[in-house]
């Protein structure tokens, strides 16, 4: 009888452990994609890096943006999808099209499914406001693709999924106070193989 009782308690603890830890990991992974500010394909949260972050945001930042700075110093916008809400896939070509941002310096970086830089022969992982090729209207287009392009080519991963981070260091005060006010670049799918 005692053995049966012990087995019941162990079973309850084990099932609870699987549900509790599993749901925590799932929420931490999912929270990154449903943060409070959404602009086109981009998501972010005003309390990234802040001491006021709640436990879910803090865990998410530890998972995908460890050592992120608070918003007075830097803003981080992440994109896991294109403008249509479809996940960024390596077999597709994308154009990231935008203009200047009110910040001292900004960059756009692509990552693989593990949140690390995408290996490529050119060691080209990002573009920033200084090394982009701009057009005469003060706009730019970055080509995210597995196939080399002549201008602003950001090599895509060979497999898995892709995500993009837009960093803006020392943002203008108006942008830091209203992170949804910037005209963020659009991520448009061109074609898929």
């Amino acid at each position: 009888m005692k053995a049966k009782r012990l087995f019941e308690i162990l079973a309850i603890v084990l099932i609870a452990l699987v549900i509790g830890v599993g749901s925590a990991v799932w929420v931490i992974d999912s929270f990154a994609k449903v943060q409070t500010i959404k602009d086109g394909a981009w998501t972010t949260h005003p309390l990234v890096g802040s001491v006021q972050a709640n436990m879910y945001l803090r865990a998410t930042i530890a998972r995908i943006a460890l050592f992120a700075l608070s918003r007075t110093e830097a803003l981080y916008y992440n994109a896991f999808t294109d403008e249509e809400g479809e996940p960024l896939r390596p077999e597709c070509d994308y154009i990231i099209e935008g203009g200047d941002l009110p910040a001292r310096w900004w960059s756009i970086t692509a990552y693989d499914k593990d949140h690390f830089l995408i290996p490529n022969a050119l060691n080209r992982y990002s573009y920033n406001m200084k090394n982009l090729r701009w057009d005469e209207q003060g706009r730019y287009k970055i080509y995210l693709s597995q196939t080399p392009k002549d201008l602003n080519w950001l090599p895509a991963a060979q497999q898995g999924t892709i995500s993009i981070t837009l960093r803006a260091y020392n943002p203008a005060q108006a942008l830091a106070e209203n992170m949804g006010s910037a005209e963020l670049p659009r991520i448009m799918k061109v074609r898929c193989e």
Binding site: A16, G20, M55
Partner: peptide
């Protein structure tokens, strides 16, 4: 118990 494990995991993760 699952709820307790959930909260503990999220809090301990960072």
């Amino acid at each position: 118990l699952a709820a307790a494990f959930h909260v503990l995991t999220v809090m301990a993760f960072p």
